[in-house]
Design a protein around this nucleic acid. Structure first.
Lengths: 366, 366
DNA sequence: TTGTAAGCGTTATCAG
DNA sequence: CTGATAACGCTTACAA
């Protein structure tokens, strides 16, 4: 009958060494450098460990000593419940998890979502035992950014914000990509265009309304850089075709609900009934908008052109005209950058390619 | 101009104390117990910290001292790339993340997927700085189970396996739930039934074939307990109705691909062309099977009844007859159990409710 | 092959 | 409100 693995206090490397009358080094070596001691002695150590209920070197103590945590932290400011429902965000997380796994690093989801106070979130960031952080799609004025920087570990920003001191970044050229698809839409002959976008800023001045027309001031004053860039891309295309960019009807939707796209579409068509093309800054908006249009008997693309952004599987399956972006690869690259920081010490900026997908939801205006 | 925050070596609590000529305790208190020193002194400490580039107490050292890591580990043996594509698994992760966030705990995805060797995975488990583990849907013979147990931290098992020493568990009654839906199908008059199931064991004896009929021996010898229980549930229903359970055509599919259900359906219909009902142990299988049937011109439910399991949104949207299980709640409960271990010290077993959803994919046989 | 000694950076305790 | 002391459990030169 083995001795009860229930010593008065938890077994440690030191207690094991004492028990076996060898040095702590030897125990440590038994686990970390098997070649540094005789196989025989190692067996004895492991056997004694089992008997005393010693689980092997304490990970935290080891981390303290080696200055390596064996994990990277992921900071997503949006609620996880939303992020996990957005296929693009999910692909990103999957890609990141994949490259972390490959490198033997864990991936820590830091408890810094919108459900907690900034203080609590900051505490979580400060107490995360990680070797680096990935910040996903934070707004320029995100309160956690400063806290993350304070930690003094490597940081990789994904998508936004730009210009964080010392942080590498993985992104796409949102403005150019959106300009390309907008040029395509304009080229089809559309002149009255509606643009449905996710939130542009962390604060929402429209109370309970799910969606609202974004006035020009809001377009330039806000902090979700990616959305703003995409809007600018559409304006670029319009200006390039001799249209007045200010004629673009921009509708912003605040919460990320399954019905957001439909709600925003309704607002856009109400604001400008002559719209013949609804462009969206995300596929999920476009898909929802299409459902809404169908319920109103508006035929796509005959009566209305609809475009998206992201290239998520469902959108491609439904033939949406959209911009495909490599979300999975974004995650992989982010993980890679964290594991292999640029030798120069100069932060890297990786701009990944996008591709215009001409689907079945776009055509000339009626 | 502030003094360069680039000291020869990283600032620590001790170096800050030396600089300010106060004790380490005082610095520690400045961060952890602001009420234990004068606001004035605290200001000075924080200012000096900023100047010296001190980011606050090192999380790892704090963990070592307090014996709290501030995170729970999640072990998913399936590839994350798959898990993140299965809505039920995803709901579970979302629920778990939610309850962790609520408790201010991080959630560490442990690098122990199928892409790494067991040794590497075991090392990851042993070096994860966590206060407890959640093990999601592991097979009975999963090699990481022993390693997780060795860690000596609280464990919550989700779904399977059963009977892990000292671990709490959150699950549903798979057998009863499947029996209920099978009784419904049998009650509709079906006698020739095919059952499509996910893999039953970690090893696959059929080479490159995506799906294959599972012989009786495999049904009883394998280790994915949940799938096996669901099969038993169907057999229970058949036996209860006076049918011979051995007449059930069970088709197992090994990889979790989007086309798996279709492939398995083809195998089932080939093995027994008289089948009038295809039951599936997962909605994703059923949806794929339906696509396959449509491509063959087989009408559902007129010519074939199809049922699923899980109640994922897409299945409900498509009117699939299925069993809805509370995946999100599973995650929440798992997190809750880890944060609030049963006072008695006796592991808890929580069996959550399921609900039969009679959809539009089931009807009497032709 | 094994042992010695010096940290890693923090917090708990208890006395002042 | 402040400080001295003693852990927390481990790794790693370097010496034997």
């Amino acid at each position: 009958m083995p001795r009860s693995p229930n010593p008065r206090r938890r077994a440690t490397l030191a207690s094991l060494a004492a028990e076996l009358k060898v040095s702590r080094t030897t125990i440590s070596n038994a686990y970390n450098r098997p070649d540094q001691l005789s196989a025989d002695l190692r067996e004895r150590v492991l056997a004694a460990a089992k008997e005393m209920g010693y689980a092997g070197p304490d990970p935290v103590a080891r981390s303290l000593r080696t200055r390596k945590a064996g994990a990277f932290g992921l900071i997503i400011t949006e609620s996880l419940n939303y992020s996990f429902r957005d296929p693009a965000a999910l692909d990103f997380v999957a890609g990141l998890a994949e490259s972390c796994e490959e490198a033997g690093q864990g991936l820590l989801l830091v408890a810094a979502g919108p459900n907690r106070s900034v203080e609590e979130g900051a505490a979580a960031v400060l107490s995360a035992g990680v070797d680096g952080f990935v910040v996903y799609a934070a707004s320029d004025d995100d309160p956690y950014l400063a806290v993350v920087q304070q930690r003094g570990v490597p940081i990789v920003i994904v998508d936004q914000p730009k210009d964080i001191q010392g942080a590498s970044r993985v992104c796409i050229d949102d403005r150019a990509a959106m300009r390309e698809i907008a040029e395509y839409v304009v080229g089809l002959g559309h002149r009255e265009i509606g643009l449905l976008t996710m939130r542009l800023g962390r604060h929402w001045p429209h109370g309970d309304a799910q969606s609202a027309v974004a006035d020009p001031e809001r377009l330039t004053s806000q902090h979700f850089h990616v959305q703003c860039e995409r809007i600018l891309g559409v304006r670029d295309a319009m200006a390039g075709a001799g249209l007045n960019p200010d004629a673009l009807t921009v509708v912003e939707t605040y919460e990320h609900l399954p019905s957001s796209g439909g709600s925003a579409a309704a607002v856009a068509l109400q604001a400008n009934p002559r719209i013949t093309a609804l462009m969206c800054t995300a596929d999920v908006l476009a898909l929802s908008a299409m459902d809404h249009l169908r319920s109103r008997g508006i035929y796509v693309p005959g009566q209305m052109t609809v475009t998206g952004f992201d290239g998520v599987p469902e959108a491609l399956a439904r033939g949406l005209t959209t911009v495909a972006q490599p979300s999975l690869e974004k995650g992989r690259r982010a993980g890679y950058l964290l594991n292999n920081p640029p030798r120069s010490g100069i932060p890297a900026i990786e701009v990944l390619d996008t591709e215009l997908v001409r689907g079945r939801t776009s055509g000339p205006p009626a």
